[in-house]
Amino acid sequence: MRDVLCVPLDEKMELVFAADCSGGIGLKQHDVVRVPYDVVGYHGARVALMELMSIGAIPKAFIMQNFVSDDVWAALTSGIEQAMRELQLSLPIVGSSESNMLLMQSAVGFVVAGTVTIDRKKIGVTPRDACWAVVGEPLVGEDVMKRKNRMLPLSLFRELLQLDGVYEIVPIGSKGIYYEWKLVCGDRPIHCSLPLHASAGPATCVLISYDRKQESLLRSIAQTLFYPIVNKL
């Protein structure tokens, strides 16, 4: 199971949706984490785009639900466009802003729509003898800003997508590395030097499966962000 919705269009093509949301993060008085709204837009777009692109889908359009105010639309879209540039994308953005009710905290929703051909869909394609690793570190809240050099850069994510021998890429969410591992591989014990249950917030790291022959190349590309996973069985 992955955090995307795939809807068949015909025998060869599927329509794909990926979503993320942000709450209590922004510049309202009662927000838990105080950051500018371009930062909110960037990280929300990052998650939705990574979820969609990780299965081999091509993004086609971006949708945003802004519950903050009309005034922050431009800042939010500026952050979204930054994420797109880093992924070498240019997508139309549509959405709506809540302008009737004043909320006490910031809240934003992000949706990406795209398409994938069934023969290029990267779900359940990892062979049994594949190796596994985490690229990036799990970070959440203020740590995303304080330790952003430990977060998987979108440029590196894009490179992983294009690298031969990388079978699947699974963005890690708020439930942590082991939660995503269980969804893909089942409840098998593993070892990794990273905390397995820590939240990765805005997909600050990814779980990857890969051909063992590519490990030296992956280590050279990811450098200190590469964390191998050892299956204890």
Rank of each mutant, 00 (worst) to 15 (best):
Ile80Tyr: 04
Val166Leu: 08
Gly141Met: 09
Arg158Leu: 12
Ala45Gly: 15
Ile80Lys: 08
Glu98Arg: 14
Leu87Cys: 10
Met53Val: 02
Val116Met: 10
Leu139Thr: 01
Asp31His: 04
Thr117Ile: 11
Val125Arg: 14
Ser99Asn: 15
Gln82Phe: 02
Val111Tyr: 05
Pro138Gly: 03
Val94Asn: 13
Asn100Glu: 13
Ile58Phe: 01
Ala113Asp: 00
Gly56Gln: 04
Gly165Asp: 10
Asp143Phe: 12
Gln162Glu: 15
Gly44Lys: 13
Val134His: 11
Pro153Gln: 06
Phe157Leu: 11
Arg150Lys: 14
Val94Tyr: 14
Val94Cys: 14
Pro59His: 09
Glu142Arg: 15
Ile80Cys: 15
Pro36Ser: 04
Val72Ser: 00
Leu139Val: 04
Ser69Lys: 08
Pro153Tyr: 07
Ser155Phe: 01
Arg150Gly: 00
Phe62His: 10
Val166Phe: 07
Leu49Phe: 09
Glu142Met: 14
Arg158Val: 00
Gly141Arg: 13
Ile55Phe: 02
Ser54Ala: 14
Ile58Glu: 12
Ala74Gly: 01
Gly41Trp: 06
Lys122Ala: 08
Ser99His: 12
Phe110Thr: 05
Asp164Asn: 13
Asn149Phe: 05
Asp164Met: 06
Glu137Tyr: 15
Asp38Asn: 13
Met84Phe: 15
Val47Ser: 08
Arg158Trp: 05
Ser54Met: 09
Gly56Asp: 00
Ile55Cys: 03
Gly95Phe: 12
Glu168Val: 09
Gly44Ser: 09
His43Gly: 00
Pro153Met: 09
Gly95Gln: 13
Cys131Thr: 00
Gly79Pro: 03
Ala74Val: 07
Val40His: 02
Glu159Trp: 08
Pro138Thr: 02
Ser106Cys: 04
Gly141Ser: 12
Glu81Cys: 05
Arg147Asn: 05
Pro138Tyr: 07
Leu152Cys: 07
Leu163Tyr: 01
Val39Thr: 08
Trp73Glu: 06
Asp143Glu: 15
Arg150Asp: 06
Val94Ser: 15
Glu98Trp: 07
Phe67Asp: 01
Asn66Arg: 07
Ile172Leu: 07
Ala133Lys: 11
Ser78Glu: 13
Val112Asn: 08
Arg128Gly: 00
Leu163Asn: 06
Met101Asp: 06
Glu159Cys: 08
Glu168Cys: 09
Asn149Ile: 04
Cys131Asp: 03
Gln105Met: 08
Leu152Val: 05
Phe62Tyr: 15
Ala48Cys: 05
Val111Glu: 06
Trp73Lys: 10
Arg128Phe: 01
Met104Tyr: 03
Gly79Met: 03
Pro171Asp: 01
Leu103Ala: 06
Gln162Met: 15
Arg120Phe: 03
Ile172Met: 02
Pro171Phe: 01
Val116Asn: 10
Phe62Asp: 07
Ala107Lys: 13
Val116Gly: 08
Asn66Gln: 02
Val125Ile: 15
Gly136Arg: 10
Ile93Asn: 06
Arg128Glu: 08
Cys131His: 07
Val35Asp: 01
Met145Tyr: 12
Arg85Met: 08
Ala107Asn: 09
Leu87Met: 13
Gly56Met: 02
Val116Pro: 10
Val166Ile: 15
Pro138Asp: 02
Glu86Met: 13
Arg147Pro: 00
Tyr167Met: 07
Ala130Gly: 08
Ser78Ile: 00
Gly44Arg: 13
